[in-house]
Design a protein around this nucleic acid. Structure first.
Lengths: 210, 210
DNA sequence: AAAAACAAACACGCAAGCATGTTTTTCGGC
DNA sequence: GCCGAAAAACATGCTTGCGTGTTTGTTTTT
């Protein structure tokens, strides 16, 4: 019993510590919001001291930006995996919507709602966020393009339609904050699914073969 | 030159002061955001002292809630006027979208983006906001219902379609914060206008006469 | 005279940034 | 393969600025 701690390398320690702090940041962002997010709380949540945080991250802005970058990347890679999992004929447009809605509603877009106001009013913060978000949008466009190939529609059409779908979901989730009315949102989502079926998808194999 | 000030009644003074403070609140909410909104700034902007503000409003939350209520009411009454101004045959669905988009994009929804996070994380604030927003949504539904009569479609269909339109616009405006790309948003808006033309409107007089 | 409207000053709490300690890991020389 | 210095990782305490709520004081209307 020389030491219970197995002497980890500094790189491993550092990486683990940063990961814990970034995860705590996203969790608190979702639970309490940006204005109530404090660096002492982040450190506490990660089981570390505030000094550890200031050692790895220059400022509150810095840790938030890096936490959001990680969240956005995890999101696109998850979506990509989903779209690859079952291509064209087995996956219909309803399935895509049924993936996107919970993806956004279970955290992603509530976190977005927290940092959008700060991004709008804090030029430095916005400048740091812009490249991350551009990558995110580019990754989405790439996924919509692959979907268009599966469905046999022009890429441009799929991109516009799916980006509109994302915007619709964003607006709906924003509304959920002050409207607790699941039936209302289900109605809109069903309406949209119907629209997507005729506008994007469900060409029968015979049609797609041509 | 006994007095340049013409001895106004207390009620008139009070009303004017409150109006100036509420207008300053909305303006600053749009310009600097909720977290940067301070009561000294509001008073300064209104050309009054902080004491005047605290005299008329119990707290920062209080003045914000009342300012937002005024903004929401002004919005619905403006929209109602617009829809009454030129009913059915002369007003097409494109015109409605061309009214709604600037209405939201020139301030209303950016202000919304400022207070939504606070509403999500501050139960007291949210509770005060809920009735105002319920009235707002009810007023919108009433307007959509009148539109449905003009266009000769079932009220339910118009309500779902127009509420979806509002959600789409909300989501798009949220995206504008970190995506400066007018062509992208125009493309989506044009796409949606096309959908609305076939889905809601533009039945020819002969058809509507029946 | 009293009550409302407005003004100015005070007090408290909090969170970020910084600076100064302590521990753990790394690495070069022997 | 070991020892000691340097550096990285982590912890603790201080300081400063700021915004809200509150209180006390002054002017205007009733």
């Amino acid at each position: 019993m020389t030491s219970a701690a197995p002497r980890r390398s500094q790189e491993a320690r550092s990486e683990d510590t940063q990961r814990r702090l970034l995860e705590a940041t996203v969790a608190l962002l979702l639970e309490r919001g940006y204005t109530r997010l404090t660096t002492p709380d982040i450190a506490r949540r990660a089981g570390l001291s505030r000094g550890a945080l200031t050692h790895h991250f220059a400022s509150k802005e810095d840790i938030v930006v890096r936490a959001l970058g990680a969240q956005l990347e995890a999101t696109t890679s998850g979506l990509r995996r989903f779209c690859d999992s079952r291509p064209a004929p087995t996956m219909n447009t309803d399935d895509v919507v049924d993936y996107l809605w919970p993806m956004m509603e279970q955290g992603l877009f509530y976190v977005t709602l927290e940092y959008l106001p700060e991004a709008r009013n804090n030029p430095g913060f916005r400048a740091q966020l812009l490249p991350l978000v551009q990558d995110f949008h580019a990754a989405l466009d790439a996924i919509w393009t692959r979907l268009s190939e599966s469905y046999g529609v022009p890429p441009e059409q799929a991109r516009v339609t799916m980006n509109a779908t994302m915007c619709l979901i964003r607006g709906m989730i924003a509304q959920t904050v002050l409207r607790d009315d699941p039936a209302y949102f289900k109605q809109i989502l069903d309406y949209w699914k119907g629209h997507l079926r005729t506008s994007l998808g469900a060409r029968r194999p015979a049609e797609r073969a041509a």
